[in-house]
Design a protein around this nucleic acid. Structure first.
Lengths: 215, 215
DNA sequence: GTGCGCCTGATTGTATACATTAACGCTTCA
DNA sequence: TGAAGCGTTAATGTATACAATCAGGCGCAC
């Protein structure tokens, strides 16, 4: 990351994902110059890139702001995500490698440990989300399509922005955990239809959770 | 398009799509400055945007070149396209408007006329491709997902770049025409399963055509 | 003769100055 | 008092100058 443009991109993106720059917040180039410690040129490049990835919205001569997501947008997003993740799960079931299966298995075992621990709930949830990401990314990887992988990565992160201040209940996490365990069974059995059905349900359940009043 | 950056983007993109800038061709900023009649700043912005859309490939400190597509890349691309276009067709079957149905109907009628005409074959094919685009875009629109629509638009154009010097046989065009006619039946009947199956087949047939030695 | 290293030219990356645009507030007139 | 028009100002859009980097070639040493 010797690049000024890459550095600016990483900084701004990070601040959007962690909620420092909330949805709707105006992103003035001059402010970002100070914030990132580089000149306007790389800042502009970073903003354009973020706009291409749907993280910010740029209007001509009116600057950039963190993109906001309506409920309909999120329905749309999760519909697509369910389709694509389901497709990925089916493809993965057909051709996943033993190493990849093992990685998912390990992640699930770690989830077990995390949920059984006495750590603060926030910490448990954070750990769970990290492991969750590993499970999903391994499935994408096993599906063997770089294009699908990058699309899904973007969709997931867009969903994150919309719910920066998210509170997952332990009940929700436990449900998700069960999905993962069953998914592992389906992948191990090489049952594409089963894996796809499970994954679609898993994603739709996640959408419902984000819709409900947060607990 | 009062913008210099937009103008540069449109020019470069056009030249890539029409084959003037062939896959693999190096795109030097200085050359593009002359070519587009704007300074390096908007040219760079255009290139970054094209890179984000997978039309060009940028390596740090080594400039940009028109992206090349391997056979595997194209298989991957068409797999995804079949999935997404199929999904769009299914959604469209459930909710397409009478106006949209009419538009598809009109396009197909025009195709009939084009294929029955005595115009030069190249002209017939060009007209057919234009109408083909209308049919597909109407289906995407009827599916009601902006995100799906933009994804498909990009996938289609990426496929075009890879086959700039493409020769479609009239036989292939006629096959495609039959697909469209049957798709219209499925959409009119509101049969989502039928529409999806047809569309998936339609896209996979297209992939095979591009793979075969060109006639 | 071959391989390594430096040097040079060309090209991209960055900073900054200037041009342009649009929003906001003021003034003025009805 | 309200609304319309204009000027100011603060932001983005563009051009250009300068810095950093990489590829290729030449020369030297082994």
């Amino acid at each position: 990351m010797a690049n000024a443009a890459d550095a600016a991109y990483a900084v701004i993106r990070g601040r959007i994902l962690d909620g420092t720059f909330a949805p709707g917040a105006r992103l003035k180039e001059a402010d970002l110059v100070e914030f990132c410690g580089v000149s306007r040129t790389p800042v502009r490049e970073a903003l354009r890139r973020l706009a291409a990835e749907d993280f910010v919205r740029i209007q001509r001569n009116q600057g950039a702001e963190v993109k906001t997501w309506s409920d309909d947008d999120l329905d749309d997003l999760f519909d697509l995500r369910a389709l694509l993740e389901g497709h990925a799960a089916a493809a993965a079931a057909r051709q996943i490698s033993p190493q990849q299966l093992q990685r998912i298995n390990d992640a699930i075992a770690e989830m077990d440990a995390v949920l059984a621990s006495t750590a603060p709930q926030a910490e448990q949830v954070a750990q769970f989300l990290r492991l969750n990401r590993i499970v999903h990314e391994t499935v994408w990887e096993a599906a063997g399509s770089g294009r699908l992988q990058s699309m899904l990565g973007r969709l997931v992160e867009q969903a994150l922005i919309a719910h920066t201040a998210r509170h997952y209940s332990l009940a929700r996490v436990a449900q998700s955990h069960h999905h993962h365990q069953e998914l592992l069974d389906a992948l191990t059995a090489g049952d594409a239809v089963w894996a796809e059905a499970l994954m679609r349900g898993h994603i739709r359940a996640a959408r419902l959770t984000l819709k409900a009043p947060q607990s």
